[in-house]
């Protein structure tokens, strides 16, 4: 059957125009992201792995034990996660995937930071304006129903193969919970507290920073946790456009039908996921 509307062609033309007219911008974005990712990778890899394991372990321990870190109570709370972190990271290292694990972590960190940089302000905006909410809501719904692969297409159009399209696709994929939960947290702040703020002469800025954001903190942190996990879940897909790390090994494993490789790198991702999840959850609980 002949096409009645050649929608794909129009989109293609549109994207071409965007790509050409804003090529400076895409180049700049590419530079910044690639540079940041590489810089972080180099830095982390320059540190002896044992130091990093020690730091992450202590971080995980402290996140759970808090101020009671050196008391019996704190030890009880923090020791199991700390143990898991040590063993898990040592396993990754022993399997020979330390470098890839660092690359994956860097990718997740960079993507998460960018997602939060956009997501939290968008969430605040959606919470404060019903119009904004009406616009943002359906877009988020659409973003979450779309298969993750779809985000690779525009990313690869604007940026050549490498870490950048991987980061960009990951950012888009993991952005929605940051927006949603920020907005939810702010909207759930009790009306009477806001009203008290107004009655005592708070400006809008004071209402936001002294009342809404602190009271929404737990919800926003839950959102950050979800962003991180979604970002991590994208690493295999991101590797299809050239992002490096454990995801790329999994992808190789699939392509080469190499069960050992696929299993080991997959296990590595799971370990990272559990560590990141537990640490952020512990932080959110405070």
């Amino acid at each position: 059957m002949d096409k009645l509307i050649d929608l794909g062609k129009y989109i293609e033309q549109g994207i071409n125009v965007l790509e050409e007219s804003l090529s400076g911008l895409w180049g700049a974005i590419d530079d910044v992201i690639s540079w940041t990712v590489e810089f972080l990778n180099d830095t982390f890899l320059a540190i002896p792995f044992i130091v990093i394991i020690a730091l992450v372990t202590f971080g995980a321990y402290y996140a759970n034990a808090g101020k009671k870190a050196f008391k019996k109570e704190g030890i009880k709370k923090g020791v199991s996660l700390a143990l898991f972190v040590v063993l898990g990271l040592l396993l990754i290292w022993a399997m020979g995937y330390w470098k890839e694990a660092i690359q994956t972590t860097t990718l997740v960190i960079v993507a998460t930071i960018i997602a939060l940089l956009f997501g939290i302000p968008l969430g605040i905006w959606a919470a404060r304006s019903n119009t904004a909410n009406a616009i943002i809501r359906p877009i988020l719904d659409l973003m979450q129903t779309m298969p993750a692969f779809v985000y690779l297409i525009p990313a690869i159009f604007f940026f050549s193969v490498g870490n950048t399209p991987g980061v960009i696709a990951t950012v888009i994929f993991s952005l929605p919970p940051a927006v949603r939960l920020t907005s939810l947290g702010i909207r759930n702040v009790p009306e009477d507290v806001i009203e008290a703020g107004h009655a005592f002469g708070a400006t809008d800025k004071q209402i936001l920073f002294k009342i809404q954001l602190p009271l929404a903190k737990t919800t926003i942190l839950a959102g950050i946790n979800q962003v991180i996990l979604l970002a991590l879940s994208m690493v295999v897909i991101a590797s299809m456009v050239g992002a490096k790390g454990l995801g790329a090994i999994v992808y190789q494993g699939i392509q080469q039908n190499d069960i050992a490789k696929g299993f080991e790198s997959g296990l590595g991702i799971v370990v990272l996921a559990i560590i990141l999840d537990r640490i952020t959850q512990a932080v959110a609980k405070k």
Binding site: V193, A199, F200
Partner: peptide, 27 residues
Amino acid sequence: MSMVFQKFGLLPHRTILENAGFGLELR
């Protein structure tokens, strides 16, 4: 003018002292 509310309207994440001084902080 200061207001006192039926539902109190205190900030749960702040101490009693900080709550009592909240109006002063705002100004």
